[in-house]
Amino acid sequence: MIKTDICIIGAGPVGLFAVFEAGLLKMRCHLVDSLPAIGGQLSEIYPKKPIYDIPGFPSILAHELVDNLKKQIDPFNPTFTLGERVEGLRKLDDGSFELTTSDKTIIHCKVVAIAAGLGCFEPRRPELPNIINYEGKGVSYMIKDPETFRDKKIVIAGGGDSALDWSIFLSDLAKEVTLVHRNESFRGAPDSAEKVVELAKEGKINLLLSANLTAIKGDGKLEAITITGKDKKATELEADYLIPLFGLSPKLGPIAEWGLNLDKNAIEVNTFDYATNIPGVFAIGDINTYPGKLKLILCGFHEAALMAQSAFAFVYPNQKLSFKYTTVNGVNAF
């Protein structure tokens, strides 16, 4: 079990800066992020894009801002759990919290700061009304153990890099691989696209272009998939597994189940200290909402500073907080 003062959910710019503000007040932080790297959107989506509204930086690349934030918080030795999603939040009798991740990591903390930005990235579902019934029963949105697919009949849907790469990889392992793509051509890496076409010619991949999934069926588990081409002709394919790879879309995820007051997928907070309706749980950055909210990194930084002041009372209930400037006192690491 990991023990910390503040568990920060989300290692984007605001979550990272919260470590600094907490550190100045001698509070230790542990960060959890569903992505495998720190930086959130800045690392995952636009690392090479310049940001123009960080005070003191006329222009800074997103990944440089993440690098700088990391350097700024290093003296406070934050710890990280990356590539795991926080699933459960439980308040214990003494007012502290226990968080559980998707990989069953348990984190015990006195304060929770949700800095989850857009939410967590989840796979997009194809538009098949009954697909939910087959999830885990033949339909799988990610490949954890390729051995599952040995000697099976697999249908992969999608046209991006992951659809191409997995089709190539599984063509050696599975009994039959069918790749279904909506378009005539692929926008993924040209090398992978060429390889797929080559394997299709050799008969190792059954390539269905300009085609869509239109139905799935099976008794208790997936048995067959209907694919409809441009000519509206429907073909039924026997399949053990369907792997839809249509990219990721940000969703609020399990946070929605924690009893927090929400407004349109954002967490309602007060503007005194960005506290939620659960004492000891704060929400900062793009994930929160309040009258006048602006989704700006700089607003998230401000929210982190104010949050830390109130978090202090939960971490050190018997101490009085006296505000100190870093220019006077420096940054006292621990």
Binding site: P126, A157, G159, G160, R187, F246, G247
Partner: peptide
Amino acid sequence: ELDMIDTLPNA
């Protein structure tokens, strides 16, 4: 925009 649309299941 094209990259994103290409990944959408309902495009």
